Simulated assay, not measured.
Amino acid sequence: MSDSIASLTLSSVVLPLETPVSDAKVLTGRQRPLTEVVLLFVEVTTADGLQGTGFSYSKRAGGPSQYAHLREIAEVALGQDPSDIAKIYDSLLWAGASVGRSGVATQAIAALDVALYDLKARRAGLPLAKLLGAHRDSCRVYNTSGGFLQASVAEIMEKATASLEAGIGGIKIKVGQPDWRTDLERVAAVREHLGATPMMVDANQQWDRARARRMCRELEAFDLVWIEEPLDAWDATGHADLSRTFDTPIATGEMLTSVPEHMALLDAGYRGIVQPDAPRIGGITPFLKFATLAAHAGLALAPHYAMEIHLHLAAAYPTEPWVEHFEWLNPLFEERVDIRDGRMWLPERPGLGFTLSPRMRELTVETAHFGAPRR
């Protein structure tokens, strides 16, 4: 007899950052510095006593909306077989059909979707990557958190050195200064400091097409692994044109919130690096759908943020990916990722391989419980 979902617990968590960070969107006046991350956690328990945990997140806005939407529709999952992940996903989509199938609507479902995959792998006694069918036991890893624009070049160099000494394999820094010459000066200084270490830059969507072409041409000299989001995230044609014009790969996709939005890149003839984000695209279910299509198109993969989830998904991608290292979420989990020799290694623990910390409970601002009473 099949198992069933007996209860769900939703938690809204507000995680403050030690230091506010700024990227190009702040310097252009479009956003305020980032001071906190709001997360939606879902804990699933089945009638047989199995458990799984997943999360989604939002920066600057959307966290309370994700929580509110899932709170409205979560009961639909009760009583369903937790192995029927695709069926449950569709039932949640239909329960909230009036708000669409992208953005907050699917980012809310993502937390539950991730939890069901975590549960399924835990039940099998396997790390999630092994359940999906891993191609490797580790992935190349790069650090972003030390390269934001509020940091001086000296601070970036100091943090980059510390990251490399801690086993990180590549360094990404932000660009998109109001004066493009400042960008080139900063990139040149950091490149000289790093030597042959793999290096990436990220403009966070703040160039128009003319400026992006000029900057990509100037940046060719620095032997970068990629130039990220040179254009508006939804400018699929522009990104595709840049990816076919320059030798340095173009990377984009982190802001897109559905498979169709990602597919617009492929339809436009994009030849760069795709950066889907499982919580943003709507969960592991849609992430895997797009990853299959991206692999078929021969595209490289570098998932955005949420390394606790993306390490597993990257390990299951056919070609060698990069995983982004952010230590911001560390306080929420008991375990730490294993980083050495420029790579992030899969945990041997089942599921995602992480358990929630007491600090996560302390940072919880709202909870909702559905189904059987909590034990």
Rank of each mutant, 00 (worst) to 15 (best):
S91I: 00
S91K: 13
L92C: 13
L92E: 12
L93M: 14
L93Y: 08
W94R: 13
A95K: 08
A95S: 15
G96R: 03
G96A: 08
G96F: 10
G96L: 01
G96W: 09
S98I: 11
S98L: 14
S98K: 07
S98V: 13
S98R: 12
V99N: 10
V99D: 13
V99S: 15
V99L: 13
G100C: 07
G100V: 02
G100H: 05
R101M: 09
R101I: 04
R101W: 04
R101S: 14
R101F: 11
R101N: 13
S102H: 14
S102M: 06
S102Q: 14
G103T: 06
G103M: 02
G103P: 01
V104H: 09
V104K: 02
V104I: 15
V104C: 06
V104G: 07
A105F: 08
A105E: 10
A105P: 08
A105K: 03
T106S: 12
T106P: 12
T106F: 13
T106V: 15
T106G: 13
Q107P: 00
Q107G: 11
A108R: 00
A108D: 03
A108P: 01
A108S: 15
I109T: 05
I109W: 07
A110Q: 03
A110P: 02
A110Y: 03
A111H: 12
A111D: 14
A111M: 07
A111I: 05
L112G: 07
L112S: 11
L112A: 10
L112V: 01
D113C: 08
D113V: 08
V114D: 06
V114Q: 13
V114E: 09
A115T: 05
A115I: 07
L116K: 01
Y117P: 03
Y117S: 07
D118K: 01
D118A: 05
D118G: 04
L119S: 03
L119V: 01
L119F: 02
K120H: 12
K120A: 15
A121Q: 04
A121F: 06
A121H: 03
R122C: 10
R122K: 15
R123M: 11
A124T: 04
A124P: 04
A124I: 04
A124S: 15
G125I: 04
G125L: 06
G125Q: 09
G125A: 11
G125C: 09
G125F: 13
L126R: 08
L126V: 13
P127Q: 02
P127N: 03
L128R: 02
L128A: 08
L128I: 00
A129Q: 06
A129E: 09
A129G: 07
A129I: 00
A129T: 06
K130A: 15
L131N: 04
L131R: 05
G133R: 01
G133Q: 08
A134R: 13
A134K: 12
H135I: 03
H135T: 12
H135K: 11
R136A: 14
D137E: 15
D137P: 01
D137R: 10
D137L: 12
D137I: 03
S138R: 14
C139R: 03
C139M: 10
C139I: 07
